[in-house]
Design a protein around this nucleic acid. Sequence first.
RNA 1: GACCCCAUCGUCUAGCGGUUAGGACACCACCCUUUCACGGUGGCGGCACGGGUUCGAUUCCCGUUGGGGUCGCCA
Length: 454
Amino acid sequence: MSVRVRFAPSPTGHLHIGGARTALFNWLYARHTGGKFILRIEDTDVARNTQEATEMILEGLRWLGLGWDEGPLTGEATGPSTGDRGPYFQSQRRENYLRRVEALLSRDMAYERDGAIRFRMRREPIVFHDLIVGEVRRELTDREAEDPDFVIVRSDGKPVFHLTNVADDLEMGVTHVIRGEDHLSNTPKHIALFEAFGVQPPKYAHIPLILNADGTKMSKRDRGASLKMYMEEGYAPEALVNYLVLLGWSPKEDRQFFSLDELIERFDLSEVLRHNARFDLAKLQWMNGQYLSRMEEDRFVELGVHAFARAGLDPGRYPPGYVKAALRTCRNKIKTFGELPEYAGFYFKERLDYDPEAEEKFFTPENRELLERLRETYANLDEWTPGYLEAQLKNLAGLLNIKPAALVHPLRLACTGRRVGPSLYHLMEVLGKETVLRRIDEALARIPPQTPTA
RNA sequence: GACCCCAUCGUCUAGCGGUUAGGACACCACCCUUUCACGGUGGCGGCACGGGUUCGAUUCCCGUUGGGGUCGCCA
């Protein structure tokens, strides 16, 4: 039987980073086995669900590159979808649930109490085999020992998660349930429900959770818990995917980088680890930087431009060749595109703002003459290449009997307003002679005059 | 509290009875260097603890401790 897996998020907020990894594992398993990846929206709790949240989920999955074979096409519950087992919104499947409940009721496998409908849960422990965890034998908790039955339809008539989840998995022909380990303890309920419906339950694979760096549970409120942050802060989706897949799964090779095709080929449930993993932003950043360094130039430029635009700068007003050259000087320098506006915003600003500390340190009366000499030197050049600019600066440093760095720092500040940035000589080449000279003049205008020596 | 899962450097992991316990990130030092980074070289750093089993345990079993999860008319 061909594999059918699903990602079934509840649209209560942004797509959680843990949810993103669950989706990724499902997607990879489907692709690896040649099966289908289904997206189902579990929006049964109307009070907490929003269309906007659903759209965030779709957008997030698309951004990651995790396309679904069946599921909604838009965030609208009654909107279009793909696949023949829809609707893919639980809010649209009410009839199915009620039919299932009727079936249970008629066979006395469920009963009504206080207006809610409860499922007659088995009193004995349930043993099942999890593809990742292995044999799981769950005893009843003391609370369950008191009353193991659980609500499947609330008194307001709304079906509850356990019921909808199982009913849909059944009707959508889901063969493997790959989900977070937080559902492990729910599994006996689900198995009992499947059996009550007279069918074999699907295979289960509970993947370990992603924890915060300090080992605590990652909650919605934690910074970094939302996929949105990574989308906004300039991460490359392929880097995030690469990082995420290595949290809780190991290809057992001494490599860190895997293309999507390689992942599809290698990924299997049998190598999913059994213990939780902490999220390490530093490693993600390193990995993202590596991806940025290897990225196709056109894409790097495109994403770079987008990052500048997000910060209110407008590279679109500059010639494409200039933009491209400017971004080229940032290659191998930044780890995320989010750093770009601060790192290289000077390319797209008519008026520079200056780092106050750097200004205090380098725009000093003593440096005024150095900048003037630099300006004079550069004003007379008719060749404007990095190598030549560097040679001229070093030559001047030699004449003045000072270290090149003494010139480099004030000059960088004058050109960029910052003390760090791309290669000075390359950035000057991109800026062009006219702009460089103008910026030196502007810097000079900010430097207090040389105090007369007493 | 009950129940379930888990446990190798700070972090992600390799290891599946005998290894100088390997790699990556991070950190430190040095080199490269106009800054920052990249890159290169080297270093620091780990089998949670206690019992077994065994000629021999990181590895198998039990317990303890610790972490996580679940116990809802949320999903």
